[in-house]
Amino acid sequence: MCVAPIDRIRAGLSVLPALLLCIGTLGAVGTVGAADLPPLSHRLTLIEDPAAAPPLRLEDIEGVEHDLADLKGRLVLVNFWATWCPPCRREMPSMERLYQQFKERGLTVLAVDVGEDMDTVFAFTGQLDPAPTFPLLLDTDSQAAQDWGVKGLPTSFVVDPEGRVIIRAVGGTEFDAAAAVDQLVPFLPKP
């Protein structure tokens, strides 16, 4: 249940507990259960005419810079998300499971947080199960999201080993669903 904290705001009292409750439930609103949430998609959209991926060079939450250009030869899942975005939170564990399943076969995941700071993202990661072990990049001014043509969160792209955007996924996606995996596997780097 999302507790209304406005009286506490006006009274100058701590609103953090109430805000956390609200932020956690805004997508579902109120007391609706998981069964009432919009289902995550189990399929990806193949792009008919793949084009070169836009540049992507950002620091992660530990201050380490990542450049997509350095990942030629790997299959890269680029995911644009935010901590307050309910479907983003719901799909992230599936990205971690996918990453664990295929990282040794050449899959890299870059999760690009749009418009938030390091503290916000870092605090959020502890709430996930499994917690992400792939890099969480910070697009604090949302310039990268705009460069990639993102219009809503979450939006994900798959970049093939040659650096072309070959797959798109708009909206929350269960990335380790069998149908999605079947679409990704053919593009993994050849051993």
């Binding site: 189990h42 959209t45 935010a82 219009k151 708009v170 929350g172």
Partner: peptide, 20 residues
């Protein structure tokens, strides 16, 4: 934050795609 929390002003969805 406001801009990205809004439903997209325009969008294209293939089957299976959606936004909230």
């Amino acid at each position: 934050a406001f801009r990205w929390a809004q439903f997209p002003s325009e969008q294209t969805y293939a089957p299976g795609e959606w936004n909230q």
